[in-house]
């Protein structure tokens, strides 16, 4: 790990000031991703601003929904009674990710800002356009079993590793940020970005800005939802494909559908056309297959991950079936019903 200066802030304003627009300074909260990246020399900050003392640790009622402070740990969020009762999709997605130890340490804001687990990004001995812009992407044509099938570019095929963010995308959360130029709200769909020709940027937060909260809207999809995560081992592994599905039903007719995919793109993947297609349709396997086909119409395999397209197709159908039946995937009993 490189040497760095350490600053501990006690207010949001102090933290922003301490970062001071220095491109080589980083906020640190749980540290579960940043410290790991520092050990691999992927991150070499000159200064760390410890934000764990900021007053951003509560979950509060807000505009009919809930406002989650950026420093609420992943575990506290998943086990919060209000989250479990009103946003069970979010609780389930969080518990599908990482380990108990990591969820105890990792923060809400940090989960949003975690970096890809692409092997090449982590290996400073190889080129990577995300780590070192312009150096190339050896994942293309290389070892790319875990990589993107949607929205990738010629410069980057990395995926966003978060489970929590897939649920937040489906729930249409809003990210509140604060920075030297004031506060602003970012719709969740606009928070993460596609790689395009600048994969060094994972999201649309500006230098010097800090995530202060994630707001959940009133609509909660408490009845018909699931988070279905498929991976190489049953626990403690990143998703090859995951599906957050949420439905509002009128009898057997779909009133509203929300569908977000993890493990397939540089950001949690939504296809509004596919969600619209389901509206007014009966909640049957045929309808769900049509939606899955639409989501995957533009899917493009890499040399080793073609299986992900069919896996995603089946996961979407099964996820929507689980949601329609009101039988969400258990995150401890791993059998898929």
């Amino acid at each position: 790990m490189n040497r760095f200066d350490y600053v501990r802030a006690d207010t949001v304003a102090d933290a922003i000031k301490a970062l001071g627009g220095d491109p080589n300074a980083r906020f640190i909260a749980g540290g579960t991703n940043l410290v790991d990246l520092m050990k691999y020399n992927v991150e070499k900050p000159g200064r760390l601003v410890d934000i764990t003392r900021l007053p951003l640790k509560s979950i509060e009622e807000h505009a009919g929904g809930l406002r989650i402070g950026a420093l609420v740990s992943n575990a506290d969020l998943a086990y919060d009674e209000r989250i479990q009762a009103r946003y069970p999709l979010l609780a389930s997605a969080i518990l599908a990710g990482a380990s108990a130890q990591l969820r105890n340490a990792a923060s809400t804001g940090g989960n949003l800002n975690q970096r890809t687990r692409c092997y090449y990004f982590y290996d400073e001995g190889t080129p990577c356009n995300k780590r070192e812009p312009g150096s190339g992407c050896p994942a293309i044509g290389g070892v790319n079993r875990i990589h993107a099938i949607l929205g990738a570019s010629e410069s980057c095929i990395a995926t966003n590793p978060s489970d929590m963010c897939v649920a937040l995308a489906a729930l249409e959360a809003t990210v509140q940020v604060s920075g030297p130029e004031g506060d602003r709200a970012i719709a969740f769909a606009d928070y993460h970005r596609l790689p395009g020709d600048d994969p060094s940027k994972d999201n649309t937060i500006k230098p010097g800005e800090i995530v202060v909260s994630v707001d959940l809207p009133p609509t909660d999809y408490g009845q018909h939802h699931t988070y279905l995560k498929l991976r190489d081992r049953l626990s403690y592994a990143f998703a090859l494909v995951s599906v957050a599905a949420a439905l509002e039903l009128d009898g057997q007719t779909v009133k509203t559908a929300r569908l977000a995919l993890g493990g397939v793109a540089h950001k949690p993947w939504r296809n509004l056309e596919a969600e619209a297609l389901l509206q007014g349709k009966s909640a049957t396997r045929e309808s769900f297959k049509a939606a899955a086909d639409l989501v995957l119409r533009e899917a493009k395999p890499q040399s080793e991950n073609g299986f992900k397209i069919e896996l995603a197709r089946r996961a979407i159908v099964r996820g929507l079936e689980q949601a329609a039946a009101g039988t969400p995937q258990s995150q401890s009993d791993k059998r898929i019903q």
């Binding site: 350490y6 501990r8 540290g31 790991d36 410890d50 130890q101 105890n104 340490a105």
Partner: peptide, 25 residues
Amino acid sequence: HGQCGACTVLVDGTRINSCLALAVM
């Protein structure tokens, strides 16, 4: 790197990976 759990300790009664925690924090 927080992948094996051998370094697990309790901080204020909560289990974490001590390898990914900076002592100063």
